Computed example of a mutant assay.
Amino acid sequence: MRLWSVHPSLLDRQALVACWREGLLAQSVIGKQSGGYSNHPQLVRFRECDDPMVSLGAFLSAIVDEADARGYRFAREKIVGRGAVPPIPLAEGQLAYEWGHLLAKLRVRSPDRAAELDSRVLPPAHPVFTVVPGPIAPWERPLG
Results as ranks from 00 to 15, higher is better:
Ala15Gln: 07
Ala15Pro: 06
Ala15Trp: 03
Ala15Cys: 11
Leu16Thr: 04
Ala18His: 00
Ala18Lys: 01
Cys19Asp: 08
Cys19Lys: 02
Cys19Gly: 06
Trp20Met: 03
Trp20Ile: 07
Arg21Phe: 05
Arg21Lys: 13
Arg21Thr: 06
Glu22Met: 09
Gly23Asp: 05
Gly23His: 04
Gly23Thr: 08
Leu24Lys: 09
Leu24Tyr: 03
Leu24Thr: 09
Leu25Trp: 00
Ala26Ile: 04
Gln27Ser: 14
Gln27Thr: 12
Ser28Cys: 09
Ser28Arg: 15
Ser28Ile: 10
Ser28Val: 10
Ser28Glu: 05
Val29Pro: 09
Val29Phe: 01
Ile30Leu: 15
Ile30Met: 11
Ile30Asn: 07
Ile30Ala: 08
Gly31Val: 05
Gly31Thr: 03
Gly31His: 00
Gly31Ser: 03
Gly31Ile: 06
Gly31Ala: 04
Lys32Leu: 15
Lys32Asn: 13
Gln33Thr: 09
Gln33Asn: 13
Ser34Glu: 15
Ser34Gln: 15
Ser34Tyr: 13
Ser34Met: 14
Gly35Val: 15
Gly36Phe: 14
Gly36Pro: 13
Gly36Ile: 14
Gly36Leu: 15
Ser38Glu: 12
Ser38Leu: 12
Asn39Tyr: 08
Asn39Gly: 12
Asn39Thr: 11
His40Asn: 14
His40Gly: 09
His40Asp: 12
His40Ser: 08
His40Met: 12
Pro41Leu: 01
Pro41Gln: 01
Gln42Ala: 11
Gln42Gly: 07
Gln42Val: 11
Gln42Leu: 06
Gln42Cys: 09
Leu43Gly: 01
Val44Lys: 12
Val44Gln: 11
Arg45Leu: 09
Arg45Ala: 02
Arg45Phe: 05
Arg45Gly: 03
Arg45Ile: 04
Phe46Leu: 04
Phe46Met: 06
Arg47Val: 05
Glu48Cys: 05
Glu48Gln: 12
Glu48Asn: 07
Cys49Ala: 14
Cys49Glu: 13
Cys49Trp: 06
Cys49Met: 13
Cys49Val: 07
Cys49Pro: 05
Cys49His: 11
Asp50Gln: 13
Asp50Ser: 13
Asp50Met: 11
Asp50His: 12
Asp51Lys: 10
Asp51Met: 08
Pro52Trp: 00
Pro52His: 06
Pro52Ala: 08
Pro52Asn: 07
Pro52Leu: 04
Met53Lys: 13
Met53Trp: 08
Met53Phe: 09
Met53Asn: 09
Met53Pro: 05
Val54Arg: 02
Val54Asp: 06
Val54Trp: 00
Val54Ile: 15
Val54Met: 02
Val54Tyr: 00
Ser55Arg: 02
Ser55Gly: 12
Ser55Trp: 00
Leu56Asn: 00
Leu56Gly: 01
Leu56Cys: 03
Gly57Ala: 08
Gly57Met: 02
Ala58Gly: 12
Ala58Glu: 03
Ala58Pro: 04
Ala58Asp: 10
Phe59Thr: 06
Phe59Lys: 01
Leu60Cys: 13
Leu60Glu: 10
Leu60Lys: 07
Leu60Tyr: 04
Ser61Asn: 13
Ser61Arg: 15
Ser61Ile: 10
Ser61Val: 10
Ala62Ile: 07
